[in-house]
C-alpha cells in the first residue's frame, strides 16, 4: 500500500486531481478512525479530518518523498489533535462512553451495534465496544501510541519521532496498552 500511496502522492503533488481523490480514498478511513478515537468526538473528528487534508494539500508541492507518506500524514493528524485537545476546554466532546443519541445509546455501543449512523459509518463490532472502553481508560501516552500504531500504521521509530520520545518509551507504552487490552481481546476470541 505504501508504494502505491507514494506514487499517488507524487501524482497528486504534480497536480493530478484523480490521484488526490484516490489518495483520500486510500488513507481516509484510517485517518478518520484515528481522529475519531483520538478526539472522542465525531464532530471534532470531521473538522480535524478536513483540516488535515487541507494542510496536506498546502504542503504537497513541497513534500519530498522519503519513502512513506503515511507517517507524515499521521504526524500532521497527531499534532493537530494535540492542538485541538489543548484548546477544547470550552467545547463539548462526546466520549465513546457517553450517550450521544436519544435513548442513552453511547457512541461505542452504536459503533459496536452494526447499526448505521447518520454518517453511514462502516461499523465495528461488539468487541470493539469492549476494547474501546479499555482504550478510554488508558493513560494518554499509551492511548496515543496505540492509536498511532493501530490506526496510523506507524512503525515504533516513527511513533517515537512523532511523539518526541525515545524508542524504548514508545515500545513500553505500546506494551502496556496491549497488556491492558488483552482481556478484552481474549474475550473477543474466546
Amino acid at each position: 500500500m505504501d508504494d502505491n500511496g507514494e506514487e499517488l502522492v507524487k501524482r497528486a503533488a504534480r497536480g493530478d486531481p484523480e490521484a488526490y481523490r484516490d489518495m483520500v480514498t486510500l488513507y481516509g478511513p484510517r485517518l478518520f478512525s484515528y481522529l475519531a478515537a483520538r478526539l472522542r468526538s465525531r464532530e471534532a473528528a470531521e473538522d480535524a479530518y478536513a483540516e488535515v487534508w487541507l494542510r496536506v494539500w498546502k504542503a504537497l508541492p513541497s513534500y519530498e518523498s522519503r519513502g512513506r507518506f503515511q507517517p507524515w500524514l499521521f504526524t500532521i493528524a497527531h499534532r493537530l489533535s494535540l492542538d485541538m485537545l489543548s484548546s477544547e476546554s470550552g467545547r463539548k466532546s462526546v466520549s465513546l462512553d457517553e450517550p450521544v443519541e436519544d435513548g442513552g445509546v453511547t457512541l461505542a455501543e452504536r459503533v459496536g451495534s452494526g447499526e448505521p449512523g447518520p454518517e453511514r459509518e462502516v461499523l465495528g463490532r461488539q468487541e470493539w465496544a469492549r476494547a474501546s472502553a479499555v482504550l478510554e481508560g488508558l493513560p494518554e501516552e499509551q492511548r496515543q501510541t496505540f492509536l498511532l500504531r493501530e490506526f496510523g500504521g506507524l512503525s515504533f521509530s516513527e511513533i517515537a519521532r512523532a511523539m518526541d520520545c525515545p524508542l524504548n518509551t514508545a515500545l513500553a507504552r505500546m506494551r502496556y496498552a496491549v497488556l491492558k487490552m488483552r482481556s478484552a481481546v481474549e474475550e473477543h476470541h474466546a
Binding site: 488526490y20 470531521e46 494539500w57 462502516v122 463490532r125 468487541e127
Partner: peptide
C-alpha cells in the same frame, strides 16, 4: 480488532475535502 473497527468518513465530507483542497 482495530481493523474491524475502522470508520469511513461520510462521502459528503470526502467530497467537501476534495472540493476545497483538491490540487
Amino acid at each position: 480488532l482495530s481493523t474491524s473497527a475502522r470508520l469511513t468518513p461520510r462521502p459528503e465530507l470526502d467530497e467537501a475535502v476534495l472540493e476545497s483542497g483538491s490540487p
